[in-house]
Design a protein around this nucleic acid. Sequence first.
DNA 1: TTGACCCATAACCGCGTAGTTATGTATCAG
DNA 2: CTGATACATAACTACGCGGTTATGGGTCAA
Lengths: 107, 107
Amino acid sequence: MPTPHDVIFSALADPTRRGIFERLCRGGEQTVGGLTAMAGVSQPAVSKHLGVLKKAGLVLDRHEGRQTHYTARRQALAPLVDWTSQMTEFWGSRFDDLDDLLKRMDQ
Amino acid sequence: MPTPHDVIFSALADPTRRGIFERLCRGGEQTVGGLTAMAGVSQPAVSKHLGVLKKAGLVLDRHEGRQTHYTARRQALAPLVDWTSQMTEFWGSRFDDLDDLLKRMDQ
DNA sequence: TTGACCCATAACCGCGTAGTTATGTATCAG
DNA sequence: CTGATACATAACTACGCGGTTATGGGTCAA
C-alpha cells in the first residue's frame, strides 16, 4: 500500500512531470495544449502525466468547453515539507537551512 | 543531464531507499548489516541502494575494518527545500504551511 | 594459513513505466 | 450535418530499475 509520501515522491520523481507541475505553479492555470507546447513530449504523454499528478492530488482539473484547465494544488506539497522537517528534526543545527529558506521568502 | 533536483527526487522516490535514509537520519550511523536487518531486502540490494544514495550525496560512508558505516548528509536535502520554496513562492497565502512547520519545530 | 565474516560487484530476470501512434469522445464553427 | 479541434484512452514498445543468486575481495579470529 502506497503511503502519501510514496505518492508524492514518485509523482515528482519524473523530470517531465515535475516540469509540468512547476509550470503550473509559476504560470497558474494552463490548458493541456499549453502544457504540451512546452513539455517536449506528445499530447497523450502530457495527459498521462496530468493523470498521475491528479491522482497524487497535486493538480486540479476544470473542464470548460472542449478544453481542460489544470491548476497546481500547492497544499499537496505539505507531506513533502513534513517529511523534510522530520528528517532534519534530529539534527543538531536543524534550523540552519530553514532560516535560509525563510530569509529568502521574506525579502 | 540530470539536474540536482532529478537526483534527489529519484533517489528518494523508492520506498526501500527512503526507508534506509530515514533510519540513518533517526538512528545515526549504521552498518550495512544493521540496515539490511530492517530493510526487508537482501544485502546486495541494500548495498545498491546505498550506492545510489551516495551518488546523490545523501549519505557518507566510512570504512572500519571489514564493515562500512553509513551516515546521512541532511544538508543534501537543501535542494528539496529550495524547490518546495520556489513552488510555493508565487502562492498567495504562502506562509501558511511553513508557519505550521516552524511551530512544530519550535516546541 | 585457514576459515568465517562483512560488504561490494557481477550477472541475470521481471515488471513497471514513460514514450509512441492510433483511436475514441465531446465540443465548437460553418 | 460536417469537419475540425481539444483532450482522453487504448494498445503497444523499449528500457530502466529493483529484486534476486552467485561470486569476489578484504579483514579478523583461531
